[in-house]
Design a protein around this nucleic acid. Sequence first.
RNA 1: GCUGGAGUAGCGAAGUGGACAAACGCAACAGACUGUAAAUCUGUCGUUCGAAAGGACUCCGAAGGUUCGAAUCCUUCUCCCAGCA
Length: 327
Amino acid sequence: MDNKIIIIGGQTATGKTDLAIKIAKEFNGEIISADSRQVYIGMDIGTGKDVKNLEFTMYNVQNKNFQIGYYTADGIKIWLYDVVKPNYQFSVGEYQDLANRVIGDIISRDKIPIVAGGTGLYLRSLIDSLSDITIPPDEKLRKSLSQLKVSKLQKQLQGTDRHKFFRLNNSDRNNPRRLIRAIEISLWKKTNSKIIKKPVYDYCAIILVNKEKTLEEKISQRIQKRLREGMEKEVRFLQKKGYDFNSPALSATGYQEIKDYLERKIDKDEAIDRWLKQEFGYAKKQLVWFKKFLPSTKKIFWFDSQDHHSYTKIRNLLCHFLKKPLS
RNA sequence: GCUGGAGUAGCGAAGUGGACAAACGCAACAGACUGUAAAUCUGUCGUUCGAAAGGACUCCGAAGGUUCGAAUCCUUCUCCCAGCA
């Protein structure tokens, strides 16, 4: 009974999905997306889900809140795309739950789960304990707390969990969202005992990066490609559906910019320029995150996806990890 | 050619005699982050020395002037926009 999973993380536009498919073919795997924006139905082009002509198959993984399924690309299953509509506020906790279920299912069918995506926290939720992450949100509480100023929230947290407050750094102490969550957790703990049962996996993580200049070129080309493939149409469709462009889903890079262009607030060049900047910024933040949170234990390996030798090295690494003979 | 408006840091934009190296927004750079993470939040952001406190230098289109003191007032020049010719 192996519980091995392969993780592929890294910056946007470095070819994580392509690599995942290649590995899946070679090692009899299935892919689980770890991307906070690809979970949204109808957001395909802008989030880089390459699913235009792919078939989606519903699958019963026994979850009361969501219906999930998989796309089949090149004979390989890709899970956790298209989980909710863009007006839904999806979160790490829900991701963790769904991903664990899917991983369990894949393992039970004697296949190798390959978790691939750029949302670092989603990946981390599968390999670190992150105990409080399972504590559910309290919408009523959030709503009432969101009216308060930061200083009030700080006071409130000091009241409910003094230690927690003083453990926060300056940045988090000024972050209303974090303060509210901290209050939520502390209140929850007062009336609930923690029972957190989480699978523990043996994992091997591959982090893909590119040299900065190469990455910028790739991002720029990809934006052009997305425009050709119909990004404008996708945005128009989402507008028509009446989705809130300030929602988490639509805060994905590119959507706001193209919307502003369609509404003639800015011209097309301006929109593309802003989109590019957003995307570069995103890639940089990803790098900061991966450097910090995936400690370089012997389970985590960094590769430049532009390096021709990378794939051979990755392959050897995975053969070793999965205890398969090198061929 | 005349009349009116305007020229402020990478961009946008406040400031209209002293608390101005100059609000604020964007961009940039650095960072934080255990249920919104492509989110949210923090710091830096004229140059320079310093770990910091702080110091030095340059600065609000250009040049000159008034004033103890000028981004702010005056003169000339220059560039831009609008109206009239």
